[in-house]
Design a binder for these strands. Structure first.
Lengths: 203, 203
DNA sequence: ACTTTTGCCTACACCTATTAGGCGCAGAAG
DNA sequence: CTTCTGCGCCTAATAGGTGTAGGCAAAAGT
């Protein structure tokens, strides 16, 4: 029939990412993607090693896209402005591309992780903190906090955690960014003088 | 052969949760669970509606367990003490029970969500905030922030995001809890009653 | 002891993943 | 313009997971 559809890794990964946004990342399947191209499943194995490889490539693509958006958002901004813009990239990306965002959460092998845009994300978060005045161990703690908030909020929102309760999610997000800005200015100096004994370890 | 193994929903769900902790939540399968009991897959369908039902029940169990631990941790504590204890429940649970923690992230149907321990989690987070002095819309924003940080941090740590970099994750976690305490005390007042025009809407 | 329940089994139909090997169209070589 | 060659997509086939229908025998109720 339609001989030579013209499959390439790039086309497959792109289509796979789109598919993820439509039906959910965990429902992206070699068979489904093959059907989308009007081709048999086996044909994809010439371009992609298999299901895992496909998913990994979609994850890497998503990380790159998000990093590019982040870089664009940070260009020419600093301080709270940069913080808000970067935060909006996360939220916006997760909203517009739920499947890609889910893909970006896929645990990667150390090699893939190192080759991914992950380090760029970390570097950008660090760059945002240049606008605040944090000495070194704290800067890393702050990077981790920001990463947690951005990811945690986007993830919870995606799962609908805020969908059916009172204040609109966008409003909370704006207020949270405000709060983070305040926090980064008032970041508590290194170890508090209270070495309080941790009391319990349940279960 | 071994007639009547004595399957029940509870035993299946419990074993499924343990299995999730061993092999990962997404690798929990009806077939695997059946093998674990030395039984054919079809036999499980008398107790559980299917794969989705099984997963959902594991998710609900995990949410309950976490809520119980949270309640125990909060008993008799207030303020920063309560905050730190609750935070530790999240981190500790995710660390000891990665599969269950992943299960707890499963998106639930509205009915299941309402019947789950999810609302208890929200109520406990709200209770923590009683130790701080936040007026009402802000309290909800703060609940969402805390939820995001707790979940985001646990999730990232589980995926190994902090595993191969400088300061130990536990240290960051302690410092982040400190920072959240500071933030909740210095929470920025709501924006002026003047509905300031939103400046820009990118994209 | 009998009947009823019901727990687990066999058999099947259908889906996805993945491998092995075949055939033909596209572009290069003559 | 023909012929050759390769690679791009195919068919075939295996393995494992989900889920349904119906059977048989052990447990439980009388």
């Amino acid at each position: 029939m339609a001989a030579r559809v013209g499959l390439t890794v790039e086309r497959l990964v792109r289509a796979g990412a789109d598919l993820a946004d439509e039906v959910g990342f965990d429902r992206v399947t070699v068979a489904l993607l093959a059907r989308h191209f009007g081709v048999r499943s086996a044909s994809l194995y010439a371009h992609v090693k298999g299901s895992d490889d496909l998913r990994t490539r979609i994850a890497l693509l998503s990380l790159e896209e998000m990093a590019d958006l982040g870089a664009a958002a940070l260009a020419g901004r600093a301080g709270k402005d940069a913080l808000a813009a970067f935060a909006e990239v996360y939220r916006g990306y997760a909203e517009r591309h739920p499947g890609r965002y889910a893909a970006a959460q896929l645990p990667l092998s150390p090699e893939d992780a190192a080759a991914s845009a992950g380090p760029r994300h970390a570097a950008m978060t660090r760059a945002i903190l240049r606008g605040y005045d944090l000495p070194e161990p704290d800067r890393t703690h702050a990077v981790r906090l920001l990463g947690s908030v951005f990811h945690g909020y986007a993830d919870l929102e995606l799962k609908g955690a805020f969908r059916h309760s009172a204040p609109d999610s966008r409003e909370s997000w704006a207020r949270i960014v405000d709060a983070l800005d305040v926090l980064l200015r008032a970041w508590p100096a290194s170890p508090a003088p209270t070495p309080a004994p941790i009391t319990r370890e349940p279960s």
